[in-house]
Design a protein around this nucleic acid. Sequence first.
DNA 1: GCCATGGCTAGTA
DNA 2: GCCATGGCTAGTA
Length: 92
Amino acid sequence: MNLKGTKFQLKVWNYLRKIPKGKVKTYLEVAKAIGKPKAFRAVANAVGKNPYPPKIPCHRVIRSNGSLGGYSRKGGIQQKRQLLKSEKVFIK
DNA sequence: GCCATGGCTAGTA
DNA sequence: GCCATGGCTAGTA
C-alpha cells in the first residue's frame, strides 16, 4: 500500500491502522498517541483525508463526548454508523 | 507569508 | 482556542 501525504498525515493514518476492529478512539486520543496532544483539530483534518477507507479505519475515531463525529467519505455519516454497527460498536 | 478552513475539545454560562 | 493544510496575495528580485 502506497500512502502519500505529509509526515503528520502518515503518522495519523498509521495509528489508525492499529485500532482493532470493535474498538474506537477519540480524536484527542489519537492526537496524544502521535505525540501532539494539542493537535486534535489537525488530527480531525488528517483523518478526514484518509485515502483508503475503510481499509484504514478512520471510521473508528469518534468524538470525546461519545457522539459519532463526521465522515466525509462515500456514504457520509450513515456509512460510518453502518461500519461501526457491523463491528458491534454502537454509538449514540 | 497570511488567512480561512475543518470529521474537534474543554470549560464557561 | 487549538493546529496542519492549501490557496492566494503581496512584494521582492
